[in-house]
Amino acid sequence: MKEMIQQLKDLLGDDFSTLVKAYDEDNRAILDSLGGLIKSGQSEEVARQIHSLKGASANIGAENLSQTCQTLEHNARAGDLSDAPELLATIQSQFEEAVTLLKEA
């Protein structure tokens, strides 16, 4: 992930901080809404939201996070939210790690 972050810093220059801010805020909002969506069983909307997080995370090089998102998205798309709360917990902690790495960079 560090390698990817360096590439992004080179690419974005001053805008890198914008990227960090956008990634943090947008996706935190997604994560905040996911708990409720899972509880109310809106699997389609869960898949939709997590899809967005998955793409962005892949793009900043957070491969583990992106993988977990992929699993949740796949299950949600199939209407299966049985593992969703545990997966969401993993995703949240992986997200915090990613954000920390970004902010340190």
Partner: peptide, 13 residues
């Protein structure tokens, strides 16, 4: 692109 992270990276690329 709705996701700001992706949009920003793509724009720069």
């Amino acid at each position: 692109e709705d996701n700001a992270t992706d949009r920003l990276i793509l724009k720069k690329l």
